Simulated assay, not measured.
Amino acid sequence: MANTVQMEAPASVKPTKATFMKRFTRDFLLNKYLYLMMVPVIAYYAVFHYAPMYGAVIAFKDYTPMKGILGSEWVGLAHFKDFFGSYYFWRILKNTVVISLYSLCFEFPAPIILAILINEVRHQVFKRVVQSITYMPYFISMIVICGMINDFTNADGIINTLLTYFGYDGHAMLQKPELFRTIYIVSEIWQKIGWESIIYIAALMSIDQEQYEAARMDGANRWKQIVHITLPGIMPTIAIMFILRMGNLLNVGFEKIILLYNPVTYETADVISSFVYRKGLLEFGWSYSSAVGLFNSVINLALLITANYVSRKVNESSLW
């Protein structure tokens, strides 16, 4: 009987994990032109967004231009304490939160509704006309927009002229604190609804049309198709846009507010951003305004992280 020699199987060689630099070098060589296209974007954010963050240190100093950032006296949390204890703190915080919530409740759903309505339209010419008309206000200068709002809401403006037929007193609407928030939100919807609907229209185009055909064969009407197909199909996009909106919830656009408000409407119109503008640029309170702005940024960061966490737990859609 022949002797058989059993050969030992060679031990399996464990693959070594490539280091980060090796993987980055390999990916860079494969996509060098894409990396080259990223350079201007990275440079923009580095120069205009990250480098200026160093200046936030003046919120903890009594900053004067003659002494500079490093030479100014350190005062710690003094400016934050002054802001939290001031008469204006609760007023501007309330106004900011109320206007932001109004925007979230009315302005945020508006482009979603418009996108769904446009998607349901079958007449292509009418669809293009609606899209063009709703896009136009977004490309008008903010100063022109605010001038139009002032003209429309003046005592002799077109809106007051129409409302006088229904018993309105005809006074300038922007002089009434109780009407400022309504005017602001309505004008925001009018200005941005068309532009913000573009991303939702793009999301609607990615939905598989066979799902609608199957639903029609099962007897589903247009409303049921929207509820069970359209909305779930664009829900990841809605979640991402909602997270981004929450991250800027308290950043109420101060440009429009500054152009529309006046001392009569400070009670309901003055927000954190407009308060920072007045204190920082008009009253030269650089350190105080920086403290207020830093407080606002911290709150926005907390809201962004919270919204991202909740979205990831609820529908598995998140930024990270």
Rank of each mutant, 00 (worst) to 15 (best):
L101N: 03
V271W: 04
S289K: 01
E188Q: 11
I189H: 09
L301H: 05
G293C: 09
V75A: 05
Y165D: 13
T25L: 15
R26G: 14
K61H: 10
S100F: 02
S287R: 05
L249F: 04
Q191A: 13
P177V: 12
I113G: 11
I201G: 03
D156M: 12
I158W: 11
I149S: 02
Y212F: 09
N315D: 06
V227I: 13
W195T: 00
I99N: 02
S206P: 00
L282W: 11
W90A: 14
K81C: 12
I149T: 04
F284C: 11
M1E: 10
L93G: 05
H123R: 14
K279L: 11
S274H: 02
L231R: 01
G167K: 03
Q191T: 14
A269T: 10
S289F: 02
I133C: 07
C105E: 06
S318K: 01
L204M: 09
D62Q: 12
M53N: 01
V57K: 10
V292M: 04
M246P: 00
K313Q: 02
L294E: 08
E73C: 11
Q124V: 12
M7I: 15
Y288M: 14
Q225N: 06
I199W: 09
V144A: 14
G194R: 00
E210C: 04
I116R: 07
A155G: 14
N296P: 00
K192F: 13
H171N: 14
S287K: 03
S72P: 01
N300E: 04
F48S: 11
